[in-house]
Amino acid sequence: MSKVIALSTATRMEPQRLETPAPMIVPNEQVDVTAANRERQPPVPKMETAIAPVSRTRTRVAAVLRAILLPALTFLVVLAIWSFVNAKITSDIPTPAEAWTRAVEVLGNPFYDAGPNDMGIGWQVLYSLGRVMAGFALAVVVGIPVGFLMGASRAVHQACYPLVQILRPVSPLAWLPIGLLIFQAKDPSAIFVIFITSIWPVIVNTAAGVQAIPQDYLNVARVLQLGKLEVTRRILIPATLPHILTGMRLSLSVAWMVIVAAEMLTGGIGIGFYVWDEWNNLNVASIIVAIGVIGLVGILLESVMNLAQRHFDYNRR
């Protein structure tokens, strides 16, 4: 009993963001309804069935139109503000049309290679992604076991929690000089910064996940007399996987933001330095294109993690 009590009464650390997907982004069926909630709701008779099929198609069409028109409207407002800034505030900001022309140029040939100082935007993105993946992978490899230990052992939790709390809010870029001193090279320093960025959400969410395992699951394991290894493999890991994936998703999105800033400081090939370089050349249209590309890659990373969650998280299967 004592072991399990220690597990459940260990001071709980609040998860970074125990997240349920934002309901407005995710279609209704995918919003995390806990099983308990689901079974308590009696099947609601669908109102739509009473409506004639014609008007149902009409509602469907209207919904699709709205889904296209409303974002388009927002986009137009942004374009208007942008044009206003160009016309009335500073003409150094190019017009949307100029930016579009530049985008066609840049994206038309993303993988040209004219020496280390002049490469296509595709290469820049790939180099940045490479650093993010290296740092992120290291953070996952180190963070998950540390989080497990913190979640499972009260002593480890007490030992590590204050340190995590102090370091977590520090801007990862503050670590860059330390990285440069230790590694004496740009690439490992940038990877080091991404590692530091990514590790906290992984640790905190993993630990919270282990602590959130219902006592009942552990009691099932005890009645079945599962060994330590079996408990880890068959209970602890699957039960915490949703939390771990949430932590990884948070890490990855922050890491992608941080790499741009880090590369602006370290230089070399990468989307961050690309932005900095174009700024030095006063090539603002390229910067705007880069911002768009950074955003799109961010969405891509997010959806990869979503896919992973759909696959591994039993709540979402």
Binding site: P214, D216, N219, V220, R222, V223, Q225, A239
Partner: peptide
């Protein structure tokens, strides 16, 4: 003095493992 499958328990809230 310790749990074992010779005394199987049905818990109040079913406690099925949700990933299985």
């Amino acid at each position: 003095n310790s749990p074992g499958p010779d005394r199987a328990v049905v818990f109040q809230n079913h406690s099925l493992l949700p990933w299985l």
